[in-house]
Design a protein around this nucleic acid. Structure first.
Length: 569
RNA sequence: GCGCCAGUAGCUCAGUUGGAUAGAGCAUCGCCCUUCUAAGGCGAGGGUCAGGGGUUCGAAUCCCUUCUGGCGUACCA
């Protein structure tokens, strides 16, 4: 239910000296339950009516108090410090919210606002020849969760892992292989060996600039279709691909398409021709560029002076292809904030070309990770790898279950679910734009505000419901005299779920959902400590209905934020 | 140099779009398992909201400015 709106509707029935319809947007949900459910700061009214705010609040309070009816939504009003605090009828509100949740179940918090529309999400998109590390976490998880959020508001979603299987990095790989690689070793150790070669390349290239020239030459050969170059790069990619696919699967990131950059290797010429025909290009220092200075976007490079393509060139070809395939209404690119200018340039060029998808492209940019020791980079070697984090999470969880003597049917599955939850949470817990120092130890601390805490709370709900083993007849549920501590505050939090989904969608901010779920977990644990749902074998139906509602919200919410719901842990 | 982003408790972060006494978790120190899962609950200490101006009934939030950090700024992605 929309508590604020319904309170406003109720207020309209009252006969008041001040016409409140002009001030509807001033009403807010109270932050603190002691100040009621909805409140009106009267300071703006004070200005308009040239009367002190506390007097206006008191006048309103007196008028409303005389008119509140026993069966109305508004139960009580108070005037405090220039605020009019409105207390809703707890019994009615609780009943309505719990009924809505238990009736709508998995559809609670679902919308069909964008029904019939398609959104394409480009996320994860990692370089196949390197290990996935903590720096790849946000794109993968935030992308996946944004997809879920888009689905939740009605979109048809297409998820694309636009993998890095092309470009200068592969020129580097071939160069390194030619200098220091050996076939057997690479075939045997796969991505491990490839990663070592990449590190070696960067070490040597620091002092020997000719190595980079060699790499660019190898990339030129790849692009020109040179047999050896193409075969070598394909070979490396196929050896490494499995590792990325496996990890994405483990994390629950499924993709509709794995079409990577390489696919566009022979589809860029039309794009370049089109840009030329539109008179947008010029040749500068031997390279083909689009000058975007007049828009404050610098110069966009389309073709290097050696004739090879760039990321931007491929992105132009890719977006054209995606529009042709999916006729999307919106496309979201989930990357690091460092690529901001790149996407601004891409979007501007698309606009200048007057493409039908101009204005439909969005860049969801997130802040970067660093390590306590400094920058994180694949060329530094194997640091903060996702596979290690996953493994450490599994071990930690197993250890705790062993200590606690928890008996679950499949300890391997549960510990993996805990680890996946912890990894998802790591990527989602803060506002996306924040730069984050990644501390493995801290992310494996399962006490306090963590994903295991939420999962554990959910397991508590399941355990109670199982033990109660009682069907709820909603008509018999009575919230008479319910207090804040008896679940009313908790119920009001549950009611925020649908609006939070919409906020998360509009702001592209998945952490809003995670934070609400965390607040619910915390409030539930208070509720759980203060009230006995089953007392001496007698089930309190009122409380049990709240537990069921909490369970539904967790299930709906967890599914969106990629945290597995575990019924026993 | 220019542009973008950030700066809140020892640490990591919230702060509902300008509202009431700035809140959580971690860490530290206490308390609570013969009753529904202690991965839990309760309590204590901890603050110049980076500094300085301004806007107004009212600012962590908006504007200006300085400082600090990150990123970008033509042949990487």
């Amino acid at each position: 239910m929309n508590l604020k709106n319904e309170v406003l509707q109720e207020l309209k029935k009252f006969d008041l000296t001040y016409n409140l319809s002009d001030f509807e947007n001033l009403f807010v949900l109270s932050v603190d339950a002691k100040n009621g459910d909805v409140c009106l700061p009267c300071f703006m009214l004070a200005k308009q009516f040239k009367t002190a705010p506390n007097i206006i609040a008191q006048n309103l309070c007196d008028e409303i108090a005389k008119q509140v009816s026993k069966n109305g939504l508004i139960e009580k009003v108070e005037a405090v410090n220039g605020y009019l605090n409105i207390f809703a009828n707890k019994e009615m509100v609780a009943k309505k919210i719990v009924t809505e949740i238990l009736t709508e179940k998995q559809n609670f918090g679902k919308f069909d606002l964008y029904k019939g529309k398609t959104v394409v999400l480009d996320y994860s998109s990692v370089n196949l020849a390197k290990y996935m590390h903590i720096g790849h976490l946000k794109t993968t998880i935030i992308g996946l969760v944004m997809k879920n959020i888009c689905k939740q508001v009605g979109y048809k979603t297409i998820s694309i892992n636009y993998v890095g299987d092309y470009g200068t990095p592969f020129g580097k790989m071939i160069t390194a292989y030619k200098h220091w690689g050996n076939k057997e070793d690479v075939e045997k150790r796969g991505v491990d060996a490839v990663q070592d070669l990449y590190v070696k390349f960067n070490q040597v290239a620091e002092t020997d600039e000719s190595l980079n020239d060699e790499a660019r030459l190898w990339f030129k050969k790849i692009e020109e279709g040179d047999k050896e170059a193409v075969e070598l790069s394909n070979w490396i990619i196929e050896l490494c691909r499995g590792e990325v696919e496996r990890l994405c699967n483990e994390l629950g990131a499924k993709f509709d398409s794995w079409r990577g950059e390489r696919y566009y290797s022979d589809k860029m010429q039309p794009v370049i021709d089109e840009l030329k025909a539109a008179g947008l290009t010029k040749v500068s220092e031997g390279a083909t560029v689009v000058d975007l200075e007049e828009y404050g976007l610098g110069v966009a490079l389309i073709q290097k002076s050696d004739g090879t393509s760039l990321y931007l060139t491929r992105d132009l070809a890719a977006v054209e292809d995606r529009y042709k395939n999916y006729k999307f209404d919106k496309a979201i690119y989930v990357t690091d904030i460092a690529q901001k200018l790149h996407f601004k340039q891409l979007f501007k060029i698309v606009e200048l070309l007057k493409k039908p998808y101009a204005g439909k492209l969005e860049h969801l940019a997130y802040g970067r990770y660093s390590l306590p020791t400094g920058k994180i980079a694949s060329r530094m070697g194997k640091q903060a790898l996702l596979k290690d984090l996953l493994e450490a999470g599994i071990n930690k969880s197993k250890e705790i279950m062993k200590e606690r003597g928890t008996k679950v049917s499949d300890a391997n599955l549960v510990s993996k679910q805990v680890a996946v939850g912890a990894i998802s949470f790591e990527a989602l817990k803060y506002e996306k734009v924040k730069d984050t120092v990644y501390d493995m130890e801290a992310s494996l601390n399962f006490d306090g505000e963590t994903s295991p805490y939420m999962q554990y709370t959910y397991a508590r709900c399941c355990s109670i419901i199982e033990k109660a083993n009682t069907n709820i007849n909603l008509k018999e549920v009575d919230f008479k005299n319910i207090t804040s501590a008896e679940g009313f505050d908790l119920i009001k939090l549950l009611n925020k779920f649908p609006q939070t989904i919409l906020d998360a969608y509009e702001k592209q901010e998945p952490c809003l959902i995670v934070r609400l779920l965390m607040d619910i977990a915390s409030e539930f644990n208070k509720f759980y400590t203060n009230n006995r749902i089953i007392d001496n074998g007698v089930v309190n139906i009122k409380y049990l209905s709240v537990v069921n509602a909490v369970k539904i919200i967790f299930e709906n919410g967890f599914k969106i934020v990629n945290i597995p719901a575990i019924s026993k842990m």
